[in-house]
């Protein structure tokens, strides 16, 4: 084991021994790549009942997405008893004395993959249609969960105008974090303000980052866990649908949403399961908003890499390559003479 990782693992074992009241011995710790908002570690501990796999998520010193760890953890707690599969949340510790920074622990869902690139390779390519069907079925189910029954209204704001609320937040991120003028982002913000849809009246738990890469899939084409709820909030369910279909998540592929199934099929599945009809005008707004939100995250990532203390390569990759792509997607979507090289003209 890497000595610095081992030290983190040993401290976690000591903490959990005290918290759970029985001895936990570290047998493995490894860092999982791609944890852009939290440092993520796979940990194995041996106790009286045998070995168990855990996922440790620790606050970084600098992050791609500025999020509230308690909100994320409470969301896992709320969703865990539902039909939406998520890792079992076990511990939230906000006192930094134990692992230098706040952290949470969840039970590992073993035997799964989350890599986007592997969806196009054997053995997964043969079952990606099934994965896609399940992915948008689960998103449709998420839209049907009652926010009061879930209990999320106790720790999440309930917006009166979800579209205006989200636009205000992410436009603010762009204004605060841009290191260079962003003419495409500013044009998109103006368009979104001018074309703001009326509130649909549909309120749901919005995952906020529902895309390929944020779920655990198996060789048989099942989805065992939906991950990364750090941007979860109460909002319009069309927001998640639009985000899940953003061209970036299948780049440069254009025919399969998220690299999985045709977008019309994804929308049809979502409509059937959720019981909602997709209003084309409102959905166009949410699709352009999705690309703007992506751009805001990448702009923020650039600022974090440049001025932050953590020089994680993912911050620079996101800040450079993803900014480039979402700029092109937005020009493609909004330009009056668009040739639609990167994004579909409607829906």
């Amino acid at each position: 084991m890497n000595p610095s990782l081992e030290a983190i693992g040993e401290r976690l074992a000591t903490y959990l021994t005290e918290r759970w009241g029985h001895t936990q011995t570290l047998t493995l710790i490894e860092q999982i790549p791609g944890g852009a908002s939290r440092e993520t570690y796979r940990v194995r501990l041996r106790g009286a009942d045998g070995e168990q796999g855990l996922i440790l998520r620790r606050d970084p010193t600098s992050s791609l997405i500025d999020t509230e760890r308690a909100l994320e953890y409470q969301t896992y707690v709320a969703v865990y008893p539902t039909e939406i599969p998520v890792p079992e949340p076990l511990v939230l510790e906000e006192d930094p004395q134990h692992l230098e920074r706040p952290f949470s622990v969840m039970r590992e869902i073993a035997g799964c993959n989350s890599a986007v690139a592997d969806l196009a390779l054997p053995p997964y390519v043969g079952v990606r249609g099934r994965i896609g069907e399940i992915k948008w079925t689960l998103l449709g189910k998420l839209a049907t969960l009652d926010i009061d029954t879930l209990g999320i209204t106790s720790f999440m704001e309930t917006p009166t105008h979800p579209a205006a609320h989200e636009l205000d937040y992410w436009a603010g991120v762009i204004d605060a974090d841009s290191l260079h003028p962003e003419p495409v982002a500013q044009a998109a913000i103006r368009w979104l303000k001018k074309n703001l849809p009326d509130p649909s009246g549909n309120l749901a738990l919005v995952h906020g980052d529902y895309r390929s890469g944020n779920f655990l899939y198996t060789e048989t084409g099942d989805i065992e866990g939906i991950l990364d709820w750090e941007m979860a909030h109460i909002g319009d369910p069309l927001e998640d649908l639009a985000w899940s279909l953003d061209p970036l998540w299948a780049w440069p592929e254009r025919t399969l949403a998220g690299g999985l199934i045709p977008r019309v099929d994804a929308i049809a599945i979502w409509e059937q399961v959720s019981g909602y009809r997709v209003d084309p005008q409102a959905f166009r707004w949410w699709q352009i908003f999705a690309s703007l939100k992506g751009l805001a995250i990448w702009i923020s990532s650039t600022e974090n890499f440049t001025n932050g203390t953590t020089k994680e390569p993912i911050l620079a990759v996101a800040g450079w390559l993803m900014t480039d792509r979402h700029n092109r997607i937005l020009v493609d979507r909004l330009s009056p003479n668009s040739a639609h090289l990167y994004a579909e003209p409607v829906l």
Partner: peptide, 12 residues
């Protein structure tokens, strides 16, 4: 918009 297209394509 034509400029923004040129600008983003140049930098891709």
């Amino acid at each position: 918009w034509s400029f923004l297209l040129n600008h983003t394509e140049r930098d891709k």
